[in-house]
Write a protein that binds this DNA or RNA. Structure first.
Lengths: 145, 145
DNA sequence: TGTCAATAATTAACATGTTAACGATACTGC
DNA sequence: GCAGTATCGTTAACATGTTAATTATTGACA
């Protein structure tokens, strides 16, 4: 018996990459004028949504690996987008908070970002959009604790 | 009116990233013993499926950007996984073909890769799995020609 | 209290993603 | 033929993904 792999045109990993390309294209276009990257935008989004938090929690919520976040946070600190402070009790820990310049980027682009999301929701239809999020969620491995 | 962005837990870009993490984890584990990367595996898959082709077509089918493919192909040539030959008619073009060592990696891992795919299909159910691929396909921007 | 394991974060090393600039070849129309 | 343009591919520069090693700090416990 042969044991054919699925055609690459029906391959789940490739489909996920391509869908991500399609979704991120307009977002990247929006962000290009701000000078921040897609990952930095995710960090700002999470901090705006949930307030300041420690690095580990931030990495999980923004779906970034720890070493990536170390570099990203250091770049964002240098740009004045966030602040980093050592936990006084456990000096291994670090708290990260939104700085005014970071908050301004969120505020300035919240509306357009919402429009982009609405565009995709309209493309698929609300029901399909929610179905897609549910199915994707079932493939999510969860936090790597 | 406030204009809230979707919670990051229901954000499409983040959901796509996390789903990809979940899907790729077992594949990366399988590939770790071969010494090739996930992208190199995609290149081998496409070549195995459709035969040799020029660089541009390969980049599109494997969802790789051109500069990435330049580096990946050069590494794979050095490892003897593929061959690169100049088109004699149009000397700008380059044909890439599977070499025996590359074919062997495909053959040795075809079965396990199929099992991994079947696992995800079973997790979601066949109907949901096909629905997911269809919805992802509708977000695909298509080739960047 | 002194040693060892566990945790938070960084650093290192290499591969890829992304955009822009560049070089080489082919085509087009005059 | 030749200037202008388009196409294929590479290179450059920087940011991120990924795994492994390292440092700093804390906690457990004999």
């Amino acid at each position: 018996m042969t044991d054919p792999l699925p055609s690459t045109s029906r391959s789940l990993p490739i489909a996920l990459i391509r869908a991500r390309e399609g979704v991120m294209a307009p977002i990247r276009e929006m962000l290009s004028e701000t000078g921040i990257t897609e990952q930095q935008w995710r960090v700002l989004r999470v901090l705006d949504e949930a307030g300041s938090m420690d690095t580990k929690t931030l990495a999980n919520r923004a779906s970034l690996l720890f070493p990536s976040l170390t570099r990203i946070a250091s770049a964002m600190r240098d740009k004045g987008l966030i602040t980093q402070t050592r936990d006084t009790v456990d000096r291994r820990r670090q708290m990260i908070a939104l700085a005014p310049a970071g908050q301004k980027i969120i505020d300035d682009h919240r509306h357009r970002a919402g429009q982009i999301v609405d565009g995709f929701r309209a493309t698929l239809g609300t029901e399909n959009y929610e179905t897609l999020l549910d199915l994707l969620g079932r493939l999510d491995p969860g936090p790597r604790d």
